[in-house]
Design a protein around this nucleic acid. Structure first.
Length: 521
RNA sequence: GUCCCUAUAGCUCAAUGGACAGAGCGCAGCCCUGCGGAGGCUGAUAUCGAGGUUCAACUCCUCGUAGGGACACCA
């Protein structure tokens, strides 16, 4: 990985110049403008003050000890103190050969060291069809899991089913159709026809099962999301794990009785108020089962728990983190990713998505209308913090003219070229590659593993579609400038190998995103 | 009232505190005697407001303004 090699070079130089100096995190970035080279660092600007030197002098000092060999072709110090690196062409070509050698293994990292990670996402209550919000969390969780696997983690994708309690009871009311009915919509009408139970609780349970099996699981299939593990709230009661969790809290003195209810002293761990575990009516709260579930996950050996929650659950974060600490685990090992909700616009008006009013568009409908690839790409491109507006008409319009097609078109073009060529591809040192657009393309190709590493830092899967667009962009430009298949067999052969490398990496990227790589379109 | 998120081009979104703020759609043009024109190339248009921190602020802090969400013995 070139980025890390450069980091090492900088580190070595600083060590050589300043024995015993405590080096802060060295940041290596891609300069926006290529006159500033391929990689750049601001380290001199960062440490100059501590050294009582000017940033320029510091930068000069660091760069003077860097030899122009191997990866580094040129080092330039630029005001106010940046050190810019130009990567040697030979090194680029060497890295390109590595891509061709490793094929789809390129980009696989060992950072995870096989550590067990649990990623929980969607986990929608079985009370209705999946919504756009579930789509956002679902695609993000799925793709992050793929990236973690690629980085060497042992990942379990998990769905937690709340098949017990208040929501199910409300569902029961709705199916039976009494005064306390809350859910509406076509699916409730369907359920009413199918479920003859007069007992609300039984009706609710039956309905939940049907919804989970026939609606949610079917939607997930459509979304191409496969969970490794399904956990159920009810089973936590059956297995007595609820009691075990309760006992731990009691033994640690972290629960107490008040107003005929049992409370959890979550304030001891930074929550703003204590929370109820067992209500006055002797019923357990969801928090209690969530605590038991947390314990269950840790007991299964996961070192890290990642959860995808919609912004409406934000207030719940401190509670769960408090619970983790109460059980004796680190709150840092519970990573809760909050994504902002999706607003749906139809006919220029906002459509409130609510299972309770029956006024919503299901995820299924959206996928059917815009296509899975476009839907995935659309959701993945947005940052978790963006409050995105999903305009149905726009989405349909864009589905024909979407960045995803730009990427897929690049892939189809590549496939077409490779199909067309009859030249046998042999090993090469790429001595005939020198055009700017060729070199730019190589730089994009070999950057793939750096993208994976970057995503691990903040779990932002949106870097993936961005990268897919970047590499497609570089390819299309290369295509305009350089004819791949020509009379010159030697040039053709080298370019074909470059195209093959692009194909390998692009396929890899699309696979991680769960977007199909099509040979023809 | 308290807490969280957001405000960037006409629209939808990018930009680990960095060097002239990037894409797509839309708009004004140009490019097929060349492997897929679903492409390439030009151009126009943007950081909500006021202070502050910093060598450097779309990014961090404070105060506003506007929008979304959360504040239960609901999940």
């Amino acid at each position: 990985m070139i980025k890390n090699e450069i980091k090492k070079i900088i580190e070595d130089s600083i060590k050589e110049n300043l024995k015993g100096f405590k080096i802060p995190e060295i940041l290596v970035e891609y300069p926006k403008n290529d006159i500033y080279g391929d990689y750049s660092t601001n380290i001199a600007l960062k440490i100059a003050k501590n050294l009582n030197k000017s940033p320029m002098d510091t930068a000069e000092m660091i760069s003077s000890k860097i030899k122009k060999q191997g990866v580094v072709k040129e080092v330039k110090v630029v005001s106010p103190g940046f050190i810019n690196f130009f990567v040697s062409e030979d090194y680029l070509k060497k890295s390109l050969k590595e891509v061709l050698k490793k094929k789809d293994k390129f980009g696989s990292l060992k950072i995870g060291k096989g550590q067990k990670v649990n990623v929980e996402f969607v986990s929608a209550n079985p009370t209705g069809p999946l919504t756009l919000g579930n789509g956002r969390g679902g695609f993000s969780g799925d793709v992050l899991s793929n990236v973690l696997k690629k980085a060497g983690y042992n990942v379990t994708k998990e769905y937690y089913v709340n098949d017990k309690g208040e929501q199910i009871r409300k569902l029961g009311h709705s199916v039976v159709g009494d005064k306390e009915a809350v859910y509406q919509g076509k699916y409730i009408e369907e359920l009413k026809k199918r479920i003859k139970e007069k007992d609300r609780d039984k009706a609710g349970e039956k309905a939940a099962k049907i919804i989970l099996k026939e609606m949610i699981k079917e939607s997930l299939k459509k979304m191409k999301i496969r969970f490794d593990k399904w956990s159920s709230e009810k089973s936590l009661y059956k297995s007595k794990e609820i009691d075990k969790a309760l006992k731990i809290l009691k033994d640690k003195g972290l629960s107490y009785q008040k107003d005929n209810a049992l409370w959890f002293k979550s304030t001891e761990f930074g929550d703003d108020k204590d929370r109820v575990l067992i209500k006055e009516n002797k019923e357990e709260t969801y928090l209690l089962s969530d605590i038991a579930y947390l314990l269950n996950k840790f007991k299964r050996g996961f070192k890290k728990l990642i959860l995808f929650w919609g912004a409406d659950h934000h207030g719940y974060v401190n509670r769960l983190k408090a619970a983790a600490q109460a059980l004796g685990y680190n709150k840092e090992d519970v990573e809760i990713i909050i994504f902002q909700l999706v607003r749906l616009i139809r006919d220029k008006k906002e459509v409130r998505m609510s299972k309770r009013t029956g006024d919503y568009i299901t995820l299924d409908e959206v996928i059917d209308e815009v296509g899975l690839d476009a839907a995935r790409f659309f959701f993945l491109t947005r940052d978790y913090n963006s409050h995105l507006n999903f305009d149905m008409s726009l989405a349909k319009e864009e589905s024909k003219n979407n960045p995803v097609y730009y990427v897929q078109y690049a892939y189809a073009r590549i496939s077409s070229i490779l199909r067309k060529s009859k030249i046998r591809l042999k090993k090469t040192d790429f001595n005939l590659i020198h055009h700017k657009s060729e070199l730019e393309l190589i730089k994009q190709v070999i950057r793939f593993d750096e993208v994976i590493e970057d995503i691990l830092k903040d779990y932002s899967v949106s870097k993936l579609p961005q990268y897919a667009v970047d590499i497609s962009d570089a390819f299309h430009r290369f295509y305009e400038n350089c004819k791949v298949i020509s009379e010159d067999i030697r040039v053709s052969q080298e370019r074909l190998l470059l195209v093959l490398a692009v194909k390998i990496v692009l396929k890899n990227t699309l696979d991680l995103m769960g977007v199909s790589a099509v040979e023809k379109m």
